[in-house]
Nucleic acid binder design. Sequence first.
RNA 1: GCAGAAGUACCCAAGCGGCUCAAGGGGCUCCCCUGCUAAGGGAGUAGUACGGGAAACCGUAGCGCGGGUUCAAAUCCCGCCUUCUGCGCCA
Length: 428
Amino acid sequence: MIDINFLRQNPEAVRENIRKKFQDHKLPLVDEILALDVKRRELQKEGDECRAKRNSLSAQIGKLMREKQPEAAAKVKEEVVENNDRIAQIEKDSEEISAKLKQAMMSIPNIIADDVPIGRDDRENVERQRFLEPAEKSFEVPYHLEILERLRGIDLDSARRTSGQGFYYLTGDIARLHSAVLTYARDFMIDKGFTYVIPPFMIRSDVVSGVMSFEEMDGMMYKIEGEDLYLIGTSEHSMIGRFMNTVLDAAELPLTLTSYSPCFRKEKGAHGIEERGIYRIHQFEKQEMIVICKPEDSAEWFRKLYSYTVELFVSMQIPVRTLECCSGDLADLKYKSIDVEAWSPRQKKYFEVGSCSNLTDAQARRLGIRYKSEKGNAYAHTLNNTVVAPPRMLIALLENHLNADGSVNIPEVLRKYMGGKDKILPKQ
RNA sequence: GCAGAAGUACCCAAGCGGCUCAAGGGGCUCCCCUGCUAAGGGAGUAGUACGGGAAACCGUAGCGCGGGUUCAAAUCCCGCCUUCUGCGCCA
């Protein structure tokens, strides 16, 4: 959510930003908001005046009662009752206007960074940089499920019976590799100075509605029956919820946190759950990074955050590239976003393994995350980025480190978490 | 999960329908006294959000959160959340 004061003073800048995102259907919202805003302030002023009147008349009644003048008091009462009818009407109107205003404001996209490439959708995202040369394979790389099955690392049939489509059993060395990746990623981030956090895996509805829209919630979140609780879709939900409606000390900033959690998603959206494999699933695990900082520091943190992910993948000898989200593909809350994509030797293209976003103060304003600045309380900036999210990430690891004989090399950095093993061997 | 108690500002805390637009202390800020220290005296201190105003300043909201009753709610009623104590259940 953007600052309504900014919109009031720079309506043209807001319109221009909407055009850049190819959301022209939202252009009329700007004038609607300006009108609603005027109306809202008028109502508040009148309401405040009525309440001031009630306060003073009620005080008069109290005084008359003490002085034992019930007739005079009754007279004033009538006046207050009349005034209260007006207050009730104003409150009703005011609530209606505020709700409309909030809804409209929520639809206004965050102002995007100057250097975001202009484009309509994900086809116009722009590659920024590549890291490591993809190695040529002398053999055909099979679908990841086949690799996993040869390594006795997966059981999807049983998972379908116990839980349905979109779940998996990982077994043996693959399960261990899964844990190894997460543990390595955790330690990697701790070494970068981040604080490790294990958050709640379920959150209440008020937190859910704070961090996402109703449509997103409907498409993603699993609700616990009979409880006001939802399974988190990412640890960002509980990590950011932690700071809802709080005022942080400036000295505490930046908060640099790395959280682990399982993630649960309905994946109701356009593509849904894959029939085969573990690319898009209902349950996965993720190591995440979250930064809450002062506005002047967020650009620098953004750059650092995605470069940490790049560094992590490079340390496992997985070729990656950074892909900048174009204006049209950028979610409305985001100021700037860069995806980290890993090389798939099978598909001979890169695929998304992480996403880094600077939300500036848009998320903080919506959730009331502030800090004490020299000039009073100000909204902080929030950023989030994937460190690593297996099992999807394992696809990249398995494909890139697959040998012709079906074995998979374990990257040096993971070996200490794999009992010193340097290879996972296929069944004979 | 059950029962009891509680939630007031940075902290402690009084108030339990109008005389409180929340008393009093501690702390904090400023001033005075003091050779230094300890101690003492005085003044200020409700942060915040929204609105009005060029500004000084004014108004409204706000006593865990959300509703309700009332001319009037920190105070009465209902729901929820949190904390503490005891019992139960677990890892």
